[in-house]
Amino acid sequence: MKNENLYNYILGIADNSLILGQRMGELCGHGPSLETDIACTNISLDLFGQVRSYFQYASKIAGDGRTEDDIAMLRKEREYKNVLLAEQPNTDFAYTIGRQFLFDVYHLAFLRELQKSTDLTLSAIANKCIKEVSYHERFSSDWVKRLGDGTEESHQKMQNAIDDLWTYTDELFHQTEADKAMVAEGIGVDVTKLKEAYYKNVSELLEEATLKVPDLKYFQKGGKEGVHTEHMGYLLTDLQYMQRAYPNMEW
C-alpha cells in the first residue's frame, strides 16, 4: 500500500471511536434513567458516525476493494489499534462515565489539533466531529461531578472507577511509528504535546468533583500496537458476528 502510514494512522484514530461506540451501544435500553439512556445511545451513534467517515477514507486509501465494513469488522484481534481505555467494560455506570470522561478530554484536545492537519479530509472530519465531542465531554464531566459530589455511595463508586481506569490514561499519549511518520508530514497530531494539559484539566475536574487524583507510577499500554486486554476478544465476537457467520454478503 502506497500510503500505509496514513492508513494505519486513520485506523488508530477510528478504532478508538469504534470500540468505545460499541461499549456505549451495549447500554442501550439499560441505562439508569431514560435521559441517560438516550444520551449514551446518542454518544454511541455519534462515535459510529465518525467511524464511518474515517473508514470510508481509509477504504479509499487502501484502494484494494476493502469496504468500511471489512475494515471495521473483519480484522484479527491484533490488528485493532484502539487504546486499552476504550475497550474497558461497563462494570457500572461510574466506569462508563469514567471511561467516557477520561477519553473525551483527550478526544476533544486531539480533534482541535487534527483540525489543523494538512490532510484536508482528516481536518474536515475533525471539524465535523468536534461539535459532537464537545457535547460528550460536557456530558461526561457533568456526570463525574454529579457522582463524585453526590452521595457517599456514588462518590466511592466514582473514585473506584477513576482509580481503576487511570492506569490506561498514559497510553493516550504514546506514539506509534505511524504516528511519528504522520506528525513529521504535518498530517498527524503530536499527542505527546497534549499530555500536560490533559492531566491538568482532568485533575482540576476531579478535584471539583471532590475526587482524589490517583497517584500512580505504573501504566498499562499496548492497544495501539494491537496488544489488548482480555475483554477485547468478546467485544469483537459481537462486533464481527454477522460478518463472520455470513461472509461476503450485503446487508
Binding site: E26, C28, E68, A72, M73, D238, M242, Y246, W251
Partner: peptide, 10 residues
C-alpha cells in the same frame, strides 16, 4: 445493536 451486520445498519 452490538451485532448489526454493517456500520450503516448499526
Amino acid at each position: 445493536i452490538t451485532r448489526a451486520p454493517s456500520l450503516r445498519r448499526k
